[in-house]
């Protein structure tokens, strides 16, 4: 029984992390039609910023803020310098963000070094849940993910800003004729997505190590979740739970490599199973 509770909590906390990363990816995809292959690198920027903030003695909340801000700034710069010129061609936007991810990884590697950094855990220790001692930090992650999803969904569906953003997503040109500045809203959405990535980067910091190519560890799962969820943001949550369940159980019982392949196969099967209208551009 303890094993089951432990496993369920592990799956939920993995799903929490993966869904927050996928949320950032999902909003640029759903709202801008952009597949951002540099998302994992925005995470990495956030994680580095938090580690360096901790190193100069700032408390953890300020480190979190630093991570979010650093990723947001890099994301905003990327949007202004590169991404906004590529909206007309989804193909080029994929390639552009892909190039950006290489530049970010290598840039950090050259300036800050390849070495692993470690960020300290702000909530050390364990707490008893249904009779099982479980790390507090992982429980905090589950709560944080739920709150983030709630905020984003409310923001999109219940505020004037959200209405405008959805109008731009539906038809940017048309929205402009209504007096909405599409380009500025796109900048806002892309920056918000980068900030979410930065936040996710800070959050995963204490779970592993911080290094230039750390994004690759997480981004595979996040992309699979986005593929499964299609262009819906709410569906990211069940997709994250499904993928985390398969990945955790198979990694634990069989092999991490088999788990990767299994998750990939599931994504392909879901693509097959979903009846989507022919010609519709969805991911």
């Amino acid at each position: 029984m303890d094993v089951v509770i432990n496993e369920v909590l592990s799956i939920l906390s993995s799903a929490a992390i993966a869904s927050v990363i996928a949320l950032g990816l999902g909003i640029t995809f759903r709202l801008m039609g952009i597949i951002n292959l540099a998302h994992g690198e925005f995470m990495m920027i956030g994680a580095y910023a938090a580690v360096y903030a901790g190193a100069i003695g700032l408390p953890w909340p300020l480190g979190l803020l630093a991570g979010v801000l650093a990723a947001a700034v890099v994301g905003a710069l990327a949007e202004v310098l590169i991404v906004r010129w590529l909206y007309s061609s989804p193909e080029l936007s994929i390639l552009g963000t892909y190039g950006l991810s290489i530049v970010l990884i290598q840039g950090v590697q050259v300036t800050l070094g390849k070495g692993y950094l470690y960020s300290s855990n702000p909530f050390p220790g364990a707490i008893e849940v249904f009779g099982v001692a479980y790390p507090i930090y992982r429980l905090v992650l589950i709560g944080a993910a739920a709150v983030l999803f709630l905020i984003i969904l409310l923001l999109l569906n219940a505020t004037p800003l959200g209405t405008k953003i959805r109008a731009v997503a539906a038809d940017g040109k048309l929205a402009e004729t209504l007096g909405i500045r599409s380009s500025r809203l796109n900048l806002v959405v892309f920056t918000a997505s980068a900030a979410l990535a930065g936040l996710a980067g800070v959050l995963v910091g204490p779970l592993g190590n911080v290094r230039p190519d750390m994004g690759a560890d997480y981004i595979f799962t996040a992309f699979v979740i986005v593929i499964i969820a299609g262009n819906s943001i709410v569906r990211l949550i069940p997709a994250a739970i499904l993928v985390s369940t398969v990945q955790n159980l198979m990694t634990f019982w069989i092999d991490p490599m088999v788990a990767k392949i299994a998750v990939l196969v599931i994504a392909l099967l879901v693509l097959q199973g979903l009846r989507r209208t022919p010609g519709e551009v969805t991911v």
Binding site: G33, I35, L37, P90, E91, I94, Y98, A216, I219, F220, F223, V224, V226, I227, P256, M257, K260, I261, L264, A267, L268, L269, L271, Q272, R276, P278, G279, E280, V281, T282, V283
Partner: peptide, 30 residues
């Protein structure tokens, strides 16, 4: 899986990208 149903090409680009991510790690681990 990826081209059989007239998906937008973005889906396919992404699916193959994910395959590369997975296989690079498999090459190291296997």
């Amino acid at each position: 899986a990826g081209l059989g149903k007239n998906y937008g090409f973005m889906t396919f680009a992404l699916v193959t990208f994910v395959v590369v991510l997975a296989l690079e790690q498999i090459a190291v681990q296997f």
